[in-house]
């Protein structure tokens, strides 16, 4: 679906974790037309002080009710303003924007890896994958038990594995340490979270490719002729796709403000992303 300007009515707003909010908006155009990994650009009310819109991953979208949810943390004046919006008020949203996750039709087992608020980036993919009859495991990392995304907000069919930095819930350590146990099971992995986490996952994915190279998907068709880097076909074949974050200006690709460094040059998070195949990104050496 092409992007459009939508007046989205806030119907529910709740603080699900300390400083983290889940808001539901009635926006049928966005709920029916968006795919997992895409985002909306939300205009804040007080233009004189806040001149930029705020980008948020679409957390869930339910075409039946026309409801989309956004999950965010209050990090500044824009998100604080958002928490004060009252039910019934309408927000100006531009969306859906960006390119979605590309799931290979043959993938049966999807591994979703989220760090903290990164859950918002992959949450919708769990719904889509379950709808398509795939199995989903979510590996989630947080600071402590008090920051763990509530399992009740996830579909029942999902296997949910938690790691906390202080060991107060689940695995004691980083979420990336859980990945080796699942990488043989997983056909594809999708991640969203802090940059170091994504960089470590990309490193793990490279190692996996070297060990299990024979299992590379899409080998049969046109062997030797690779799809161009960044194309949907190439992303579908990638083992690891990551959803990246960057401060954003226009969110439509005009201002070139939200770039990340890719192996072939700068990439716009809003247009080429926010989802990238891990191979497209020039990761810093760990």
């Amino acid at each position: 679906m092409t992007m459009r300007l939508v007046a989205a009515e806030l119907v529910d707003s709740r603080q699900i974790l300390p400083g983290q909010w889940l808001q539901s908006f009635h926006a049928p155009e966005l709920a029916t037309g968006s795919r997992a990994g895409q985002f909306v650009h939300v205009r804040t009310g007080d233009y004189s002080g806040l001149v930029l819109r705020r980008p948020f991953s679409i957390n869930t979208a339910d075409p039946a009710t026309g409801i989309i949810t956004l999950h965010f943390r209050t990090v500044g004046r824009g998100t604080e303003w958002l928490t004060r919006v009252r039910e019934g008020e309408r927000l100006d949203m531009l969306g859906p924007l960006g390119r979605p996750f590309e799931v290979d039709p043959r993938s049966r087992h999807l591994l979703l890896i989220a760090g903290g608020l990164g859950m918002a980036g992959v949450r919708m993919l769990a719904d889509e994958a379950l709808r398509d009859g795939r199995q989903v495991t979510i590996l989630f990392g947080a600071l402590s038990a008090g920051h763990v995304y509530p399992s009740s907000l996830l579909p029942d069919e999902v296997e949910y594995v938690v790691a906390t930095d202080d060991g107060s819930l689940g695995h004691h350590g980083l979420v990336t340490e859980l990945v080796p146990d699942y990488e043989a099971w997983a056909d594809q992995a999708f991640a969203c979270g802090p940059h170091p986490m994504l960089a470590r996952l990309a490193q793990l994915a490279t190692g996996r490719r070297e060990r299990l190279g024979v299992a590379k998907l899409g080998r049969k068709r046109g062997a030797g002729r690779a799809d161009p880097l960044g194309s949907p076909a190439a992303r579908r074949k990638a083992f690891l796709q990551v959803s990246m974050e960057q401060t954003m200006g226009c969110a439509v690709g005009a201002c070139l403000g939200c770039t990340v460094i890719g192996v072939e040059g700068p990439l716009r998070v809003c247009r080429e992303g926010p989802v990238f195949a891990a191979e497209e990104i020039a990761w810093p050496a760990l």
Binding site: S48, G49, L50, V51, L52, G78, Q246, T247, M248, G249, C255, L256, G257, C258, T259, V260, I261, P266
Partner: peptide, 11 residues
Amino acid sequence: PPRVTETPGGM
């Protein structure tokens, strides 16, 4: 990057 940031009444 980063290339943009919001400032009071501007960017």
